[in-house]
């Protein structure tokens, strides 16, 4: 087992959290105009690159495929992944995908992963711990279920030895060591590594790398299985919360601790 590794990394294009984010349009979906590669997916990409580099890299026949599903702009998440070091990119895009919930997203991604594995199935599917916009963490578990793969989620460390994978998962009341055999689906946390930045060489090299565009017919999915029609949840109303505003700010003149307690007492918080 594991002569060479074929890894698919799932990368999402998300609104940049440094700016105000909005639920736009009439359908309460997220406005993606100011978007970037979800920073939590950079940890998955880094984990994939470290795994293949430890096995002789691309020269030895290993590869890392960055896959993103999303509208036209999502190709930027794929491009960024290629600059960071992915071998090739895949952009799944189709008008019918708009408004997909986690169930519909996982259906489309599972079909794309099967399509990409038609000649040789991937050994590992790597994802981020959560998308920084949806924040649901549903997609990795749903993909594992749909693909019938062992689920190793929230990995804070990851080691591969032959066909066996070992990960550490840090829970609230306990920390676990988890084992699974390849092929497997792994989501990684931001504890696992320090993602690299694209350098000039990487940016130049990325220009020569392939990005495959896929649409629903390519992966054998009907329009009605995804998007609003194929989703099992519907957002009915969305209301912007008034942004928090600053309250009273004081500078300590030796009595700030006492004034803090007065504030708490006035708020009935003691």
């Amino acid at each position: 087992m594991e002569e060479t590794l074929k890894i698919i990394v799932l990368v999402k294009h998300v609104p940049d959290a440094q700016f105000d984010r909005h639920l736009g349009g009439g359908d309460n979906t997220t406005d993606r105009s100011e978007s970037i590669l979800s920073e939590l997916d950079e940890y998955a990409l880094e984990a994939a690159l470290q795994l293949i580099e430890a096995r002789g890299g691309e020269a030895a026949g290993n590869k890392v495929i960055a896959l993103s599903m999303g509208p036209a702009g999502a190709v930027n998440a794929v491009k960024k992944s290629l600059q960071i070091g992915a071998t090739e990119g895949v952009h799944l895009s189709d008008d019918a995908l708009a408004g997909s919930d986690a169930a519909a997203t996982s259906l489309a991604l599972a079909a794309a992963i099967r399509h990409l594995g038609a000649d040789a199935p991937a050994d590992l599917i790597l994802t981020g711990m959560a998308s920084t916009d949806g924040e649901t963490s549903l997609v990795p578990a749903q993909l594992a279920e749909r693909l019938g793969l062992p689920q190793v989620t929230f990995a804070a460390s990851l080691e591969l030895d032959g066909g066996k994978l070992t990960a550490r998962r840090d829970g609230d009341s306990h920390a676990d060591t988890v084992e699974a055999t390849l092929p497997a689906l792994v989501s990684v946390t931001d504890q696992i590594n320090d993602p690299r930045y694209p350098n000039f060489k990487g940016i130049m090299a990325a220009k020569k790398k392939t990005i495959t565009a896929l649409t629903l017919p390519d992966i054998g999915v009907e329009p009605g299985q995804v998007g609003h029609a194929g989703s099992w949840t519907a957002v009915e109303t969305a209301e912007a919360r008034p942004p928090r505003t600053a309250g009273t700010i004081i500078t300590d003149e030796g009595d700030a601790g006492l004034r803090l307690v007065e504030f708490l007492a006035a708020q009935k918080l003691l």
């Binding site: 984010r21 949840t233 519907a234 957002v235 009915e236 109303t237």
Partner: peptide, 8 residues
Amino acid sequence: SYTTTARA
């Protein structure tokens, strides 16, 4: 920043 209602 938003509150939403949703249904299955």
